[in-house]
Design a binder for these strands. Structure first.
Lengths: 226, 226
DNA sequence: ACCCGACAGTACCGATCGGTACTGTGACAG
DNA sequence: CTGTCACAGTACCGATCGGTACTGTCGGGT
C-alpha cells in the first residue's frame, strides 16, 4: 500500500473537493457540471474521476466532510461556556454563521433537496441532525432540565428553522429570534426545584439580551467553518 | 378579449401546471424536463410554451399557486378554534400535513433551493413567510400575549424547522415536537395578569397532549392541499 | 539512464437539455 | 364549405450534460 513518499498524494483530491463544495453550495448540484469543477480546480477530468468515480460521490464526500467540519467547529467553540450559556452559546455561534456574507442555507439541507432520491445523502443528513441532538443534550446536562431529550428536539427545530428563514428573508433576524426562543424554552423547561431557579432566572435574563457578547471564533465560510 | 365560447379555455394550462407541480415537487426542478412535463400532461410543447414562455415561468406559477393554496387551507381550517387552540390548531394542521405520505418538505423552500438565483422565486418565498406571520399574529391576538410579533416569529421558526426535520428524519415526530414547543412558548409568553392565567394554564395543559384530537379536513396532497 | 505513476489538457461519446418550427386534426363560426 | 382557432405530435436545433479514452509531460525512485 505504501508508495514511498507521495509529494502531494491527495492535494489534488482536496483541491477538487474544495472547488466542488464551493460551486455546489453556490449554485446547486444540478447547476454545476463536472467539467466546470475540474477546470476551476485546475484539474483534469481524469483526476476528478480517479478520486470520485461519479458526480454523486463528490456530493457525498462534500456533505460528509461538511458535517464533520460544522460539528467540530460547534463543539470546539461551545465547550467552555457554563450554565445556560452552554446551550445559548450554540445559538450565538449559529447566528454568527448565518450572518456570514454568502450564506444561503445549510449545505446539507440544500444537498438533500438537490439529490432527492439518494439514500446515502439522506443518511448523511440524518446523522447530521443526530449530531445536533448529541451536542444539545450534552449542553443541556446538569442544568436541571426535566426532559433534555424533548427540549433538544425542540431546539433543533429552532436551529433548522432559523437557517431556512434567514435564507429566505435575506436578513439575520431569525438567528436572534431562535436564540430568544431557545432561552424562553430553556427557562420554562428548568425544573421548579434545586438549582433550576438560578438557571431559570439566568435564562430569563439572557432572553432579553440582544446580541452575542463575544465572537469566539472566525465565523465559518459560506460552506462551513474552515 | 372575449372569444365567444371557449370549451376549455385554460384547462390545458391547468393540466400542464398540475403536472409540473407534481413532477417538480417529486424530483426537483432540474431533474424534470419540459418534454416530460408536456408528455405526462398529455400536451404538446407548443401548448406548454404558449402558457409558460419559459420553464422558469412554470416554476413561478407553481410556487405562487402553491402558496395561495396552502394559506387558504390553513386559514380556512384554523379560523373556528378559540383560545390558545387558535394558534395550536395551526400546528395540528401542519403536523397532519407533514404526515402525508409522499411529503418531503415545503414545496416553496425546495423551489428556492432548486432555483437559487431567481429573485422572483425568492420574492414569492418571502411573501409566503410573511403570510405565515400574518396568520400567526392574527391567531395570537386577544390571548394577552406580550409581544405577538416576536412570538409569531419564533413560531415560524418551529414551523419551518419541523418541515425540514420531518423530511430529513423520515418520521413525523418533529411535528409533535413543534406543537409542544409552541405550547410552551405560548404559555411563557402570556402576560402575568388578566386572562393570561387562563391561557397559560390552558396552554400548559395543551403542551402535554399527544396528538390532534380531530382531523378537521382532508390532509393536503404532497404538493399542498387541494 | 530508465521507468512509472500522477497529472493537465483535450477530443470525444451518447444522451438529454430548453426552446423552436412545422405538421395534421378536430371543433366551431361564418 | 371554408375560415380560424387550440391542440397533439414530431422533428429538429445548438448547447451542455456525465463519463471515457487518449494524449503528452513532469518528477521522483531505482
Amino acid at each position: 500500500m505504501a508508495k514511498g513518499v507521495l509529494p502531494n498524494p491527495s492535494a489534488t483530491r482536496a483541491r477538487i473537493l474544495d472547488t466542488a463544495t464551493s460551486l455546489f453550495y453556490e449554485r446547486g448540484v444540478h447547476a454545476v457540471g463536472v467539467n466546470e469543477i475540474a477546470a476551476t480546480a485546475g484539474a483534469s477530468k481524469l483526476s476528478l474521476y480517479r478520486y470520485f468515480p461519479a458526480k454523486t460521490d463528490l456530493v457525498r464526500a462534500m456533505l460528509s466532510e461538511h458535517s464533520d467540519r460544522i460539528h467540530a467547529w460547534l463543539d470546539r467553540n461551545t465547550a467552555s461556556a457554563t450554565g445556560p450559556d452552554r446551550v445559548l452559546a450554540v445559538f450565538d455561534l449559529l447566528t454568527q454563521w448565518f450572518a456570514q456574507p454568502g450564506y444561503h442555507g445549510c449545505a446539507i439541507v440544500n444537498g438533500v433537496t438537490d439529490t432527492r432520491a439518494d439514500p446515502e445523502v439522506a443518511a448523511i443528513a440524518r446523522a447530521h441532525l443526530h449530531r445536533y441532538h448529541t451536542l444539545l443534550e450534552d449542553r443541556l446536562s446538569g442544568l436541571g432540565i426535566e426532559d433534555p431529550r424533548a427540549l433538544s428536539r425542540q431546539l433543533l427545530l429552532l436551529i433548522e428553522g432559523a437557517s431556512v428563514v434567514v435564507t429566505i428573508e435575506g436578513t439575520t433576524d431569525a438567528g436572534a429570534d431562535a436564540r430568544a426562543a431557545a432561552a424562553a424554552l430553556l427557562a420554562s423547561s428548568a425544573k421548579a426545584a434545586g438549582t433550576c431557579e438560578i438557571v431559570r432566572e439566568s435564562a430569563r435574563h439572557e432572553a432579553t439580551r440582544q446580541v452575542a457578547p463575544h465572537l469566539p471564533t472566525q465565523p465559518p465560510s459560506p460552506a462551513g467553518p474552515r
